[in-house]
Write a protein that binds this DNA or RNA. Structure first.
Length: 284
DNA sequence: TTTAGTGT
C-alpha cells in the first residue's frame, strides 16, 4: 500500500515538473514571437474589432513582414511591414511563386490558372526585396501573401501606388510602416462562392501608410478591383476608420485613444505632396 | 529596377 502511494506521488511530481517546463517553454516562445511581431508592426499587429468568423485570423511570420491569415476567406486579411531608406535600392530576379504549407488549404502556384485574375502581391516584391533582402523577397512569393487582383489594378493602379511608396515616400520620410489587405462585400454569403480555387475574391484593396514619428502621419487608400489603371491615386484616399469599418479590423491597437482619433478619423493629405505623384504614368 | 499570364 505504502509503495503505491509513493508511486502516485512520484507521478504527480513528474506531471508537475512537465507542466512547469511546458509553461516556461511556452512563455519563452510567446515572448520571442511578440518580439518579432513588434519589429514588424507599429503600435501592435492588427486585430479584430469583434470576434467574428470573417475577421478572425492567425499570424504568419516571414522575413520582413507579417501576414494575418484567414482560414475562412483563404486570404491574407492584412500584411504588415516596415520600409526604410536604403543606399542603393535594387531587387534580384523574380523568384517563382511557392506554396505555403502553413495555410493548410491547398493553394498551389497554378490555382489562379485561367481565372482571369492575377496573383497579386500584398507585401510587394520590389520594395521588400530592396529593403529586406533576398530571403524576404522569396517569402513575398508565398501564396499566403497573394490574393486575386484584376490585371488592370495589379499591374497599373496598384503598381503605381507601390512605386510611389518605395520611390517617393520612403526617401522623403526615411521610415514607413505599411499595412495592406483585401476588402470583401459586407455580407459574407453574398461572396462566399466567388472564389479562385479556394481563395475568395476581394472586391477592393486597402493600403495604409504611416510615418511612425512623435507626431505620426497617416495616409490610406481604398482601391476597387474594377479600374482602368490610369486614374489619379488621390481619388482613392480614405480615412483609416473607413477601412476599419469595411474590414472589421482594428489597426494600431496600442495607439492612445486621443492619437487614434486624430490619425484614423480624418483624411489628412498635407505633407505627402500627393499632387506630385498621383498622376505618374503606369510602367506597364 | 518595381506588374504579371500564357501553356507546358
Amino acid at each position: 500500500m505504502r509503495k503505491r502511494i509513493s508511486f502516485w506521488r512520484r507521478q504527480a511530481r513528474n506531471v508537475g515538473v512537465s507542466l512547469v517546463f511546458v509553461m516556461v517553454a511556452t512563455g519563452l516562445w510567446y515572448t520571442q514571437e511578440q518580439g518579432y511581431r513588434d519589429q514588424l508592426s507599429w503600435m501592435g499587429v492588427p486585430t479584430w474589432e469583434t470576434l467574428t468568423p470573417t475577421s478572425v485570423h492567425r499570424v504568419l511570420r516571414n522575413d520582413g513582414f507579417l501576414v494575418g491569415w484567414s482560414d475562412l476567406r483563404v486570404n491574407p486579411l492584412w500584411v504588415s511591414y516596415y520600409l526604410h531608406a536604403v543606399e542603393d535600392p535594387h531587387a534580384g530576379a523574380r523568384p517563382d511563386f511557392q506554396r505555403d504549407w502553413r495555410t493548410l488549404w491547398p493553394i498551389t502556384t497554378d490555382s489562379y490558372f485561367g481565372s482571369g485574375y492575377d496573383r497579386g502581391h500584398l507585401a510587394p516584391n520590389y520594395a521588400i526585396a530592396a529593403v529586406h533582402g533576398r530571403v524576404a523577397q522569396s517569402h513575398t512569393f508565398r501564396m499566403s501573401n497573394i490574393t486575386p487582383q484584376r490585371p488592370d489594378l495589379n499591374r497599373r493602379l496598384w503598381q503605381r501606388l507601390e512605386e510611389v511608396v518605395i520611390d517617393h515616400f520612403v526617401p522623403r520620410f526615411g521610415t514607413l510602416q505599411v499595412i495592406a489587405g483585401p476588402v470583401f462585400p459586407e455580407r459574407y454569403l453574398d461572396n462566399a462562392l466567388n472564389r479562385v480555387g479556394l481563395v475568395e475574391v476581394p472586391e477592393a484593396f486597402y493600403k495604409i501608410i504611416v510615418v511612425p514619428a512623435e507626431q505620426p502621419l497617416a495616409l490610406a487608400f481604398l482601391m476597387p478591383q474594377n479600374v482602368r489603371g490610369n486614374e489619379p491615386l488621390d481619388r482613392y484616399v480614405v480615412s483609416i476608420d473607413e477601412i476599419e469599418m469595411r474590414t472589421g479590423l482594428d489597426f494600431f491597437p496600442n495607439l492612445s485613444e486621443d492619437m487614434a482619433g486624430r490619425l484614423e478619423g480624418q483624411v489628412r493629405t498635407q505633407g505627402w505632396e500627393l499632387e506630385k505623384v498621383a498622376r505618374l504614368p503606369s510602367r506597364f
